[in-house]
Design a protein around this nucleic acid. Structure first.
Lengths: 226, 226
DNA sequence: CTGTAGTTTTCACTTATTGAAACGTCCTTT
DNA sequence: AAAGGACGTTTCAATAAGTGAAAACTACAG
C-alpha cells in the first residue's frame, strides 16, 4: 500500500534531484526546494557531498557531483535500450533530417529523454538527454501513457511547446509501451502529409526496435565467478 | 573533522553505488556488498526503488533506475569540462588514430573517465565512460595525483593492463590538476619515439583546454528568473 | 550603523531506523 | 521424497540516530 520508505533517504534523494535539476543551488534554495529546514538540508547535503554525489563550487553553491555523472554514465551504458535504439535514431535522422528521440516513462508520471540524435537542419529543436517531459499534451506522453495509437503513431502540433510538432510512436513489446521513439520538427517546416509520412517511419522503427529476439545482456547478471 | 554524515543516507548511497557498479544485483548480494543486514538492505533498496533510483527487473534483481540515468545525463550536460574537451578529444583521435579520454579525480582516490572518443584502428582499447581507474600505476593517475610531469606528459607502458600503453597529460589551470587527457594504445603498435610525439600532442591539447579565458557557464547559475 | 538573509553549530526530544528472529518459498542435494 | 540451504519478506522491541528551533556568526544592503 503506502510506501515503506526511509524518510531520511527520501529527503536526501529529493535534495540530490533538486541540485541536479537546477545545476547549481544554494543551501537555502535547496532547502526550500525540498521543503526542509536549513539544518536538515545542510546535514543531508554534507552527506551527499562526502560521497561525491554533490560538490560545492568555489562560491559555496551545491552542484551535481562526479558520482552522479559516473553512475549515470554506467547506467546509460548498461541500458540496452539505448544501444538498441541508436541505429534507429540514426536512420530517422537520415530519413527526416529532424532530431529524433528515445524516451521512456519515468517513475513519477513523466517521461525522460534517454537518447537523441540531432537533426541536420540548421534550425532544430533543442532538447537534451535527461530532460523530463510531461505526459499530458505531448506526443511522447500520448504513446507512453495511452494505449496503442490509431495509425501506429501520434502527431501533436503545437503541444506544450508552440511552433513545434512532435511525432511519436510506442515501443511496445507485448502491448505495453515501454518506450517511445519520436521526431520533433519546427511546425512551419512540416505539412500534414509529411507528418504522416514521418509518422509511418517512426512507427516502423519503433515496432522493429525489440523484434530481434535475442537475449542481449544476460552476461553480467548475478554476481561474479566464485 | 570526522564526517558529520547521516548513516542511513550513506548506506543507501553505497547500496545505489553497488547496484550501479554491478549493473544487476540480487538483494542478498547487494546486502553483502554494502555490509548490511538483509532487512536493512531491503528497506533501503525499496526507498531507492520508490524514487526511481533503482528498479527491479522481472527476476527480482535490482538494477540502476531511470533517475540515475536522468540525473547523470543532466550532470554530464552541465559538466562544462566535457563539452570543452570534446573538440580536443576529436583532434587527438584524428592525429593519433587512437582512443582518447578525459578523466577527472574522483572523491575516493580514484579517477573516472568522463568522456572518450574511439580511435580509428580496428584493434582499439575498450574502456568506457563512468569507469573508475586506480591512480596507482597508471598514466592518468600519475598526472591527476602527482605534480606536473617533466615533459608535460606521462607515458606508462604496460601499467595495470599489460600490452597497453597510456599517455596522459594534466589539465591544470593554476597548478592543480583538475582533469587529464589521455591516449591509450596497444603497446605493440607504438614506439618510444611515437609515444613522445603523442605525448606532446596530448600535453598541448590539455594545456589549451582551459585557456580561453571566458566564463563558460555562468548563465545557469543560481535559480531561475523570479 | 542597523536590518535582513544566509550558513553553520549546538542541543534536548523522540521519532524513525535497526537487525535478530521467524516464516514461506524455491532450489539443490542426498 | 525428504532434508538442507539460500533467498526474500515481515514483525517487533530496543535504542541509536535524525530532527528542527534557536542562537551565533557572517555578509551584504539600505
Amino acid at each position: 500500500m503506502a510506501e515503506s520508505s526511509t524518510r531520511t533517504v527520501e529527503r536526501a534523494l529529493v535534495l540530490l534531484g533538486a541540485v541536479c535539476d537546477a545545476g547549481s543551488l544554494s543551501l537555502a534554495d535547496a532547502a526550500r526546494e525540498a521543503e526542509l529546514s536549513a539544518s536538515t538540508a545542510l546535514r543531508l547535503l554534507r552527506t551527499l557531498e562526502g560521497t561525491g554525489f554533490v560538490r560545492r563550487d568555489p562560491l559555496g553553491a551545491y552542484r551535481p557531483g562526479l558520482r552522479v555523472v559516473q553512475l549515470g554514465a554506467q547506467a546509460l551504458g548498461h541500458e540496452s535500450l539505448v544501444s538498441l535504439a541508436e541505429p534507429a535514431l540514426e536512420r530517422l535522422v537520415r530519413q527526416t533530417g529532424e532530431s529524433a528521440y528515445l524516451s521512456v516513462p519515468s517513475h513519477d508520471g513523466e517521461g525522460v529523454y534517454l537518447a537523441m540524435r540531432e537533426g541536420t537542419h540548421s534550425v532544430r529543436h533543442a532538447s537534451w538527454i535527461g530532460r523530463s517531459i510531461p505526459l499530458d499534451g505531448t506526443a511522447v506522453g500520448a504513446v507512453l501513457a495511452g494505449g496503442p495509437p490509431a495509425g501506429g503513431f501520434v502527431v501533436v502540433r503545437d503541444g506544450i511547446e508552440a511552433d513545434v510538432t512532435a511525432i511519436a510512436a510506442p515501443v511496445s513489446p507485448g502491448g505495453r509501451a515501454v518506450a517511445a521513439l519520436s521526431v520533433v520538427v519546427p511546425s512551419y517546416r512540416i505539412t500534414a502529409v509529411e507528418a504522416r509520412r514521418f509518422g509511418a517511419l517512426v512507427a516502423q522503427e519503433a515496432a522493429a526496435l525489440l523484434t530481434p529476439p535475442d537475449a542481449h545482456d544476460t552476461a553480467t547478471t548475478r554476481g561474479e565467478p566464485a
